[in-house]
Amino acid sequence: MQRVNMIMAESPGLITICLLGYLLSAECTVFLDHENANKILNRPKRYNSGKLEEFVQGNLERECMEEKCSFEEAREVFENTERTTEFWKQYVDGDQCESNPCLNGGSCKDDINSYECWCPFGFEGKNCELDVTCNIKNGRCEQFCKNSADNKVVCSCTEGYRLAENQKSCEPAVPFPCGRVSVSQTSKLTRAETVFPDVDYVNSTEAETILDNITQSTQSFNDFTRVVGGEDAKPGQFPWQVVLNGKVDAFCGGSIVNEKWIVTAAHCVETGVKITVVAGEHNIEETEHTEQKRNVIRIIPHHNYNAAINKYNHDIALLELDEPLVLNSYVTPICIADKEYTNIFLKFGSGYVSGWGRVFHKGRSALVLQYLRVPLVDRATCLRSTKFTIYNNMFCAGFHEGGRDSCQGDSGGPHVTEVEGTSFLTGIISWGEECAMKGKYGIYTKVSRYVNWIKEKTKLT
């Protein structure tokens, strides 16, 4: 034993070699072989497995989906700052455009905790909710729209109204504003409101030439003092309507412009014939205590009207009353817009006519005020429907199939267009061939041609 100890002390290297040989010859039971080890760690190889990531292109799944990435790591994937920024906006807080917040056709661009709407022409605001041009839906104005110097929408209202708090709607500024039905039992019968379409306001006024200088022999019209197929109006439903009495009662109609003036057809009036105007009328054979009678003290036909040349060209006249009318729910003026808007309103496509005229061709006159909704007829169809001249200051309205029309005794009465609950004068009943005849239409004086003249002559002093 002493000898062994001496050998170990003198030859430590020998001992180490012996131990190493023993270990190498022993069977290893701690580690699995290569094949079995792979069965336990069965993990798919990654895209760049075996390579240094710093030297390969980034992978979106590896960089940002398996674990949260930084902007720089995302930049490695896209290799483009702009594309990385677009991805980053949604990656950080989701897609803010998912709810489609942009209105009126706006395009949404996502941002971090926010979004941006790219608005089409005519709109602005956070969600493109603000109209900035009158060309689109009248700028959301209830009545009139004008573009300011910086191309912003400025709404306005006709006389007797003021802008509401929203700067879009119009509200009454006087007790009985024009064009409004205020009798409670008839307010439910107000005709369907007309909503502004998209309009090209630059070209809204037709490029028409008034044929002022045409000389033409007097034409022989049949029954051209021209509501057939209409309905009984309720008291106060058309408070701007008046009836004219002269040699015979209810020979023509008219509309209240203001307390002192009536507008009617020029062919209705004769110099030297006494005319009485009755406002607030409903049943011409009954006294309903809503009527107001006034005498006409002055007749002003349009300066281009000449019955000797043509009885229905420039067929418009103004009547001055001896005493002002007292405005109330049964006696209310009709609204008159400017030339541009009167023309736009007419193009809405349908209007209402009213009167006490004959209820059928050569038949009896109506006792109760009649009204009828009539569609506008395109000019080409209008011209083809008659052998008589249709001037540019006239328009056609009615039904091709016949059966409904204005008729004798309705002449001078109103053709009105309702705009968001307020009625505007767009025409004056003038003439036609018979009444409600198939293929024939009622012919009306186009008020847009005469609004400046009306307003100039009827100013209240």
Results as ranks from 00 to 15, higher is better:
R3K: 08
E10D: 12
S11K: 15
S11T: 06
S11A: 12
P12N: 05
L14M: 07
L14H: 02
I15H: 02
I15Y: 03
I15N: 00
T16Q: 06
G21W: 09
Y22P: 02
A26Q: 00
T29Y: 06
F31W: 11
F31G: 15
D33K: 04
H34V: 09
A37M: 07
A37T: 15
N38W: 10
I40K: 12
L41H: 13
L41M: 12
P44D: 11
P44N: 08
R46N: 07
Y47K: 02
Y47I: 08
N48F: 04
N48C: 15
N48L: 11
S49V: 09
S49T: 11
G50E: 11
Q57V: 10
G58M: 04
G58Q: 03
N59D: 11
L60N: 15
L60Q: 15
R62F: 11
M65I: 14
M65F: 09
K68P: 05
K68V: 12
S70D: 05
S70P: 09
E76P: 15
E76M: 15
F78E: 15
T81P: 13
E82I: 10
T84W: 04
E86A: 15
F87R: 15
W88C: 13
W88K: 08
Q90V: 06
Y91T: 03
Y91K: 15
D93N: 15
D95P: 15
D95C: 10
D95V: 09
E98Y: 13
E98H: 09
N100K: 13
P101H: 14
P101K: 12
C102P: 01
C102I: 01
K109P: 02
K109G: 08
D110V: 05
D111L: 15
I112R: 13
S114A: 12
S114W: 09
Y115W: 14
E116K: 13
C119H: 02
F121P: 14
F123G: 11
G125F: 01
K126H: 04
N127A: 08
C128H: 03
D131N: 14
D131G: 10
N135W: 08
I136K: 12
E142N: 03
Q143I: 00
Q143T: 02
Q143C: 00
C145D: 01
N147L: 10
S148Y: 05
K152S: 11
V153E: 11
V153G: 12
C155R: 00
C155H: 00
S156W: 09
S156F: 09
T158H: 05
G160L: 01
G160A: 02
E165Q: 08
Q167H: 07
K168H: 11
K168S: 05
S169F: 07
E171L: 12
P172I: 04
P172L: 03
A173S: 13
V174R: 09
V174T: 07
V174L: 07
P175F: 04
P177K: 00
P177I: 01
C178V: 00
G179N: 02
R180Y: 05
V181D: 06
V183Y: 10
V183E: 08
S184G: 10
T186A: 09
T190L: 05
V195L: 12
F196E: 10
F196Q: 06
P197C: 14
P197D: 08
P197V: 09
P197K: 12
D198V: 09
D200V: 09
V202I: 11
N203P: 07
N203L: 09
S204W: 07
S204R: 07
A207Q: 12
A207G: 08
A207S: 10
T209N: 12
L211Y: 10
N213P: 07
I214C: 11
Q216D: 10
N222H: 03
N222D: 08
D223W: 07
T225A: 04
R226H: 11
V227S: 07
V228C: 13
G229R: 09
E231S: 05
E231A: 04
D232M: 08
A233E: 07
P235K: 09
P235F: 07
P235N: 07
G236P: 04
P239R: 00
P239S: 02
Q241C: 05
V242R: 00
V248R: 11
V248H: 13
F251I: 08
C252K: 00
G253F: 07
G253A: 13
G254P: 00
S255N: 02
V257K: 01
N258A: 04
E259F: 02
W261P: 00
I262F: 02
V263P: 00
T264W: 01
A266E: 00
H267P: 00
H267D: 03
H267Q: 06
V269R: 01
V269H: 02
E270W: 10
T271K: 11
G272I: 09
G272E: 07
G272H: 08
V273S: 11
V273K: 12
K274D: 11
K274T: 11
T276A: 07
G280S: 01
G280P: 02
E281I: 10
E281T: 11
N283R: 12
E285I: 09
K293C: 04
K293L: 09
V296T: 03
R298C: 02
I299N: 04
I299Y: 07
P301Q: 10
H302Y: 12
N304Q: 11
N306L: 05
N306H: 08
A307M: 10
I309K: 14
I309M: 07
K311M: 07
K311L: 12
Y312L: 07
I316S: 01
A317F: 02
A317L: 02
A317Q: 00
L318A: 02
L319G: 02
D322K: 03
E323H: 04
E323A: 10
E323N: 13
P324H: 05
L327R: 04
S329Y: 07
Y330M: 11
V331G: 00
P333H: 01
C335S: 00
D338H: 06
N343V: 03
F345H: 02
F345E: 02
F345N: 02
F345C: 02
L346K: 03
G349D: 13
G351P: 02
Y352F: 12
Y352A: 10
Y352I: 14
S354T: 13
G355F: 13
G355A: 15
W356I: 12
G357W: 10
R358E: 14
V359E: 04
F360I: 14
H361K: 14
K362R: 10
K362F: 09
G363T: 13
R364Y: 06
S365A: 15
S365C: 07
L367T: 15
L367Q: 11
V368L: 10
L369Y: 08
L369R: 11
L369K: 14
Q370R: 12
L372I: 10
V374I: 15
P375Y: 14
L376G: 03
L376E: 03
R379K: 13
R384C: 07
T386N: 13
K387F: 08
F388I: 11
F388R: 13
F388V: 15
I390E: 10
I390N: 15
Y391K: 10
M394T: 14
F395S: 02
F395L: 02
C396K: 02
A397S: 07
F399M: 08
F399T: 07
F399A: 04
F399N: 06
G402P: 06
G402D: 06
G402M: 13
R404M: 03
D405K: 14
D405Q: 14
D405C: 10
S406T: 14
G409E: 13
G409D: 13
D410A: 08
S411K: 13
S411E: 13
H415K: 01
V416G: 05
E418L: 12
V419D: 02
E420F: 15
G421R: 12
T422S: 05
L425Q: 02
W431I: 05
E433R: 06
E433D: 11
E433L: 07
C435Y: 02
C435R: 04
A436Q: 15
A436H: 12
K438D: 14
K440T: 14
Y441F: 11
Y441R: 04
G442M: 15
I443E: 02
I443F: 09
Y444K: 01
S448Y: 03
S448Q: 06
Y450E: 00
Y450A: 02
W453G: 01
I454E: 00
E456C: 10
K457R: 13
T458M: 03
T458N: 01
K459M: 13
L460D: 15
